[in-house]
Amino acid sequence: MLRNIPPILSPDLLHSLRAMGHGDDIVIADANFPGTALSQRCHRLDGVSATDVLAAVLTVLPLDTFVADPALVMQVVEDADAVPPIVGAFKKIITATADTPASLAKLERFAFYERAKTAFAIVQTGETRLYGNIILKKGVIGT
């Protein structure tokens, strides 16, 4: 056990978060996401919501301040302007938890999958709310 580390962050996931470098992406994905098919480094957190994982990850991972969009969500298919409730929840968590709050940019579904293929890791959650997927770009820890 470690202090001040959310217990839902498994040892393997903590290793990935620590091993990531500045500019690397991590995907937090819902239960429907093809995480294992898209990544050799897929961490399973079945039974845990994507919002809980996002809040836990942001306690240890800084967002990149050198890019315009360090947080990306999946655009709703056939309704690019729609904002699913979980996306609103993601925004609240980023505003409350991230060291540098950021807006959420959107990627079309297949563009999101392509970006996920290049991510350092994917965290497959048990999230059942639709469009419960977010990509975070790791920043640096300042002095």
Rank of each mutant, 00 (worst) to 15 (best):
Q40W: 05
K91T: 04
Q75H: 03
V77C: 08
Y113Q: 03
I86S: 01
G126Y: 12
R109E: 02
H15F: 13
L9A: 01
I134P: 11
A68I: 07
P84Y: 02
I5R: 15
V48A: 07
I8N: 10
L72M: 14
T100K: 11
L45D: 02
F112M: 04
R115I: 02
I93Y: 07
M74T: 00
K92G: 11
F110T: 11
T65P: 09
A116N: 01
L2P: 09
L107G: 00
E127T: 02
K117N: 08
K117L: 11
I5G: 10
L14P: 06
S103E: 15
H22S: 11
F90E: 04
A71V: 09
V48S: 07
N4A: 09
P101Y: 12
S10Q: 05
A68F: 06
K137I: 12
P84S: 12
T97G: 07
H22W: 13
P70A: 09
A98M: 05
T118Y: 04
L14V: 12
L72C: 04
V73E: 00
V140C: 10
S49Y: 11
V77R: 11
V67E: 09
A55R: 14
G35K: 11
L61H: 06
R129E: 10
L9H: 01
I93D: 04
T128F: 15
M1K: 13
P34C: 05
L63D: 12
Q40H: 11
A80R: 09
R3T: 15
N4H: 15
D79I: 02
A50F: 04
A89G: 04
C42Q: 08
G132D: 00
I5H: 08
K138Q: 10
F110P: 00
K92I: 04
S49E: 11
I86W: 00
D99C: 09
V27D: 08
A96N: 07
T128D: 14
R109I: 00
H22I: 13
H43Y: 12
M20G: 06
L13M: 15
L13V: 05
F66M: 11
L9Y: 01
L14F: 05
G88T: 06
A68V: 09
P6V: 02
A55P: 03
D79L: 05
T128E: 15
K91I: 03
A98C: 10
V123M: 02
F90R: 04
I26L: 15
G23V: 01
T36M: 09
F110V: 05
K92L: 07
V53Q: 07
T59G: 02
V27E: 06
F90P: 02
T51A: 13
A82C: 13
V73G: 00
A111L: 14
A89I: 00
E127G: 03
H15V: 10
L72F: 03
R109A: 05
P62C: 05
H15T: 14
D46I: 14
G139W: 04
T125H: 07
D99W: 13
K91M: 09
S49T: 15
A68P: 02
R109V: 00
I28C: 12
A82P: 08
Y113H: 13
P34Q: 03
A89P: 01
I94A: 01
T100Y: 14
L63S: 08
Y113S: 03
T125K: 13
D24P: 05
L130G: 13
F120I: 01
I8T: 15
A68S: 12
Y113T: 01
Y131T: 00
V87T: 14
L107V: 00
T59Y: 03
T125Q: 10
D24V: 05
Q40T: 10
